[in-house]
Amino acid sequence: MNNIFIWLDKLVELFVVNVLGISMLTRFGSSVHFFFYDTIKIIILLGIMIFAISYIRSYFPPERTKKILERFSGITGNIMASLLGIVTPFCSCSSVPIFIGFIEAGIPLGVTFSFLITSPIVNEAAFAVLLAAFGWKIAVLYVLTGVVIGIIGGIMIDLFHLEDQVEEYVYQINMDEKEVEVLSREERVSFAWENVKEIVGRVWIYLIIGIGIGAVIHGWAPAPVLAKYAGPDNPFAVLVGVLIGIPLYSNAIGTIPIAEALISKGVGIGTALSFMMATTALSLPAMVLLRKVIKPKLIAIFVTITGVSIVFVGYLFNMIANYLV
């Protein structure tokens, strides 16, 4: 991925050396270069990725996803739900109506959870930033593991038969059938473009803060110390990363440039990735919303299954990291 951006690397170097007059050999120069290079690169990738995924997404509003999932049962249902979680629009504001809609349509609880787990983990913004920071192998693996976690989580919830852990009123709701409107190509393009503006408008500040912190780490953080305490050989680093990640919801995008800088200083890739997954999949605000439709026991099971899977992914990535970069 970085090969494609060599032009940008050189351009920013010219800017730092000739316009700002800072030597690239100083720590300050290297930090300033990292900051401008990363910001521009990530914004370009973010824009392209959000546009592409949003365009595909315009074919899969939750109403249609629901109709598709009604046709599948068993593990196929979990797999389909998790895959659809990649492209379906998702914001924590919508998790509750989507949950009710699925359950009301008779979609099994476990299949619904496969969707609810994958949907926030795998999103185009995280994918774009991962692509920018670590290259396509890691980005694709992140998507795959997100899908697998959704499938396994959903299957386990199916196995436990937790239907009684859904608030009773959910089963009594009668949902109005809505026709899914067919969009023209112009409408899809406009939908995709609106999404780019909306998401970039929402995350840029966190991104810049994240890149800023990353730039400082890049220039100053003592690599041997970080590698010792948060390197791939420390078994507790992944656990701590996940625990720190849970309350950090809205800063998920901003954490990636920080993770990139930390990794370049010796922190394990798995540690950084599981930290990121925890920020999106196990967010406190989403839990509070889900409490409206499911009882605490099921929330606890959901958090445990997802949390354990994420920790597992962290160890896996730390183990295979050498083959990835």
């Binding site: 509003p61 939750p62 509750v96 109506p97 009710i100 809609g101 949902m175 109005d176 059938e177 809505k178």
Partner: peptide, 12 residues
């Protein structure tokens, strides 16, 4: 929430 979904809306 009951009133929202009973109108067939899944995205708020």
């Amino acid at each position: 929430m009951e009133d929202i979904v009973s109108r067939g809306v899944m995205m708020t």
